[in-house]
């Protein structure tokens, strides 16, 4: 009873800003700092204004391109890597895995400067690639999948070898499908992180037409709206909506993902 009350209280605290965002997006700009009354709600005018004045759909398309690009390459790289670390005996495997673990401890802010300089040097700033490149290799994915593959039965791999499968096929045809829950969990984690990422796009992107949603909101605030909080909140609602809807649709997977990855 008390536990539930505490959880409800915590939930209310967490939800309050979002509720405020929703309410503000429905109110005229002048009413933001006033008291609350249902009569003051003016409907979806702010949304229309936000969609008209800022290329929100463009921002979201950018977000989709960046998130999908990052995720696909992450999976293509991390799954074979994890398989090799989990199942193939080779010299230096332990040291290699040690490096993976060590790399888990390095936040993106640490290599940000060299990465920026490198990208600037090869003239890749202000491209989709610049936003995706630093995240192609996810040590977290390698670590997660390696732990998952570790428990994959050796006998099944051997049976596949006897059937005539090469290592490439063993990974994609037999081992990866067994890790679908882990892959789903990681995908959710990756997409959420990169959809919401502001830090890295802020560094490498200056052109508005390439901006992913959070960066786009930043431009939107600066350039278009000034202190039109209603429109700003409407924009924020629009770019948060896909993730919220995805969460509602695949809630079970989300929860599974969070418990499996032990994050947040």
């Amino acid at each position: 009873m008390i536990a539930h009350a505490m959880l409800a209280l915590g939930g209310a605290v967490m939800l309050a800003p979002f509720l405020w965002m929703l309410l503000t997006s429905l109110r005229p700009a002048s009413g933001v700092f006033g008291g609350f009354s249902l009569a003051a709600l003016e409907g979806f005018g702010n949304y229309a204004y936000a969609l008209e004045t800022a290329p929100l759909l463009r921002f979201m398309l950018n977000g989709v391109i960046v998130c999908a690009g990052i995720l696909v390459v992450q999976l293509l790289v991390a799954i074979p890597c994890a398989y090799a670390l989990a199942k193939l005996p080779f010299r230096g495997r332990g040291a290699m895995f040690g490096l993976v673990l060590a790399a888990l401890c390095i936040p993106i802010q640490v290599p940000a400067l060299p990465l920026y300089l490198g990208l600037a040097h090869v003239g890749l700033l202000d491209t989709y690639l610049a936003m995706m490149l630093p995240f192609f290799l996810s040590v977290f994915a390698i670590f997660l999948f390696r732990q998952f593959f570790k428990s994959f039965p050796d006998e099944i791999i051997q049976a596949a070898r006897l059937d005539g499968a090469g290592e490439f096929e063993i990974v994609w045809r037999f081992v990866a499908p067994s890790a679908l829950p882990a892959i789903a969990a990681f995908s959710i984690f990756s997409v959420v992180a990169h959809w919401n990422d502001l830090y890295w796009p802020l560094i490498v992107i200056t052109e508005t037409r390439l901006a992913p949603p959070p960066l786009g909101m930043l431009y939107f605030r600066d350039v278009e709206t000034g202190s039109n909080y209603g429109a700003l909140m409407a924009g924020a609602t629009i770019i948060t909506a896909p993730l919220v809807i995805a969460f509602l649709v695949a809630r079970r997977r989300f929860i599974q993902g969070v418990t499996m990855t032990g994050l947040k």
Binding site: E155, I156, Q158, A159, A160
Partner: peptide
């Protein structure tokens, strides 16, 4: 195989 090693 002892565990049959079927592809699940």
């Amino acid at each position: 195989f002892q565990s049959y090693a079927l592809y699940p």
